[in-house]
Computed example of a mutant assay.
Amino acid sequence: MSFSTVIATTSFVSVLTDGRHLSSGAKEIVNEEFCKVMDLTENRFITFGGSVKRIFSIIEMLQESIKEKSLYDSVIEIRNYLSTIENEDKVMLCFGEFKNNIPQLYTLNSNELEIQTHIPDPGELTSICVSGHKELFDRDFNDIIVEELSRLGAINPDTVLEAQSKLIDYIASKDKSVNTNKFKLLLPV
Rank of each mutant, 00 (worst) to 15 (best):
L71E: 03
S70E: 08
S23W: 08
M61F: 10
T41L: 10
H21T: 06
T41G: 05
E32D: 12
A26S: 11
R44G: 03
K36E: 05
R44V: 04
I46N: 02
E60K: 06
V52E: 15
L22F: 10
F34R: 14
V37P: 00
S14R: 03
I58D: 07
D73Q: 12
K69Y: 08
S24W: 05
T41C: 07
E60M: 00
Y72W: 01
F34A: 14
E28M: 10
D39M: 11
D39I: 01
K69C: 07
S14C: 15
S23M: 09
L40D: 01
V30D: 01
L62V: 03
T47C: 15
S57Q: 14
G19W: 14
N43G: 05
R20P: 13
C35S: 11
M38K: 03
R44K: 14
E33F: 11
K36R: 09
L16V: 14
E64A: 07
L62Q: 00
K53G: 15
E32C: 04
R44H: 04
S70R: 06
S24E: 11
E60Q: 07
R54L: 03
S14G: 10
D73H: 09
Y72N: 09
S74Y: 10
T17Q: 08
E32A: 09
F45H: 08
I29S: 10
T41H: 06
S65E: 13
G49N: 09
L16F: 04
S14I: 05
D18S: 09
I66G: 01
I55H: 10
S23N: 12
V37Q: 02
F56C: 06
N31I: 03
V37K: 05
E68Y: 08
E60F: 03
L16A: 12
S23K: 07
D18V: 09
L22W: 11
V37R: 02
E33I: 00
Y72I: 11
S70V: 06
L62K: 00
F34S: 13
T41P: 02
L62G: 00
G50C: 09
F34K: 14
G50P: 07
N31W: 12
L62M: 12
S65Q: 11
E42G: 06
C35K: 10
E68G: 01
S74H: 11
S70W: 05
S65P: 00
K53Q: 12
S51N: 10
V52C: 13
H21W: 14
I58H: 09
K69W: 01
F34D: 11
S24F: 10
I59P: 00
K36Q: 02
I58K: 08
E64H: 12
K53P: 05
D39W: 08
R20F: 11
T47I: 04
F48D: 03
I29H: 07
Q63C: 01
M38G: 01
D18P: 05
D39F: 06
V52H: 15
I46S: 02
S57W: 01
E64F: 13
G49S: 15
A26I: 05
V37S: 01
I46Q: 02
S23Y: 08
V15P: 15
I59R: 01
L40K: 04
